[in-house]
Amino acid sequence: MTAAGEKALREELDQLKTVDRPRVIADIAEAREHGDLKENAEYHAAREQQGFIEGRIQELEGKLSNCQVIDVTSIPHTGKVIFGTTVTIINLDTDETKTYQIVGDDEADIKVNKISVNSPIARGLVGKEEGDIVNIQTPGGAAEYEIDEVAHI
């Protein structure tokens, strides 16, 4: 994963451990004071939320302990598309220009132009260089793109 992706996961983990977990524990304690736990909807909702939080904490800790962080800014620029680079491509059929950053699965968000290294577009681009023309299979059919620029941002 990229350095920014690791930072985001660490921030989420910190939020869950220092803010959300104590809040849910307090909610459970407050709901217990209301009496009969069998028919106490607040208690059951808080326990369910606690289960989600604990599950997410375990998931994040597992990902962070097994991840390899790649800081693309420290890698010399060769013009080759690799994990973490930001790639500007031109659709040769429509002359439409798009810019994507190739990131890990956890960081992928098409709304901010971050695509997973496992996506069809990224798989077609990785290993290619600036100026290369690539043919990529998309859901709408095959498309031909020219790699305009590869940036280490």
Rank of each mutant, 00 (worst) to 15 (best):
M1C: 01
M1W: 06
A3S: 15
G5W: 03
E6T: 04
A8K: 14
R10C: 11
L13W: 10
L13R: 10
D14R: 15
L16M: 04
L16K: 02
V19K: 09
D20H: 11
R23E: 11
D27Y: 07
A29Q: 13
A31R: 12
R32L: 12
H34E: 15
L37M: 04
K38S: 01
E39T: 14
E39K: 15
N40V: 09
N40M: 09
N40A: 06
A41K: 03
Y43D: 04
H44G: 07
A46D: 00
A46K: 06
Q49K: 15
Q50L: 15
Q50T: 04
I53P: 06
E54S: 02
Q58E: 12
Q58N: 13
Q58T: 10
E59A: 05
G62W: 07
K63A: 13
K63P: 07
N66L: 15
C67F: 08
P76T: 10
P76Y: 10
H77V: 12
T78H: 02
V81K: 02
V81E: 04
V81Q: 03
V81I: 03
I82N: 04
G84M: 01
T86N: 04
T86D: 00
T86I: 02
V87L: 05
V87Q: 02
T88Q: 07
I89F: 00
I89P: 00
D93E: 14
T94S: 13
T94N: 10
T94A: 06
D95H: 13
D95M: 14
E96R: 12
T97L: 11
T99V: 01
Y100M: 01
I102P: 04
I102D: 03
V103M: 02
D105T: 13
D105I: 14
D106W: 12
A108D: 00
A108Q: 00
D109E: 08
D109R: 09
I110G: 04
I110W: 06
I110P: 03
V112Y: 09
I115E: 05
I115W: 05
S119H: 00
P120G: 04
P120A: 08
A122R: 01
R123N: 07
R123W: 05
G124D: 11
V126T: 05
G127F: 02
G127Y: 08
E129F: 13
E129L: 08
E130D: 03
G131M: 07
I133Y: 06
V134I: 09
V134N: 08
I136H: 03
Q137K: 06
G140R: 14
G140P: 05
G140M: 14
G140W: 08
E146N: 07
E146T: 06
I147C: 01
I147W: 01
D148S: 09
D148C: 01
V150C: 00
I153D: 09
I153F: 02
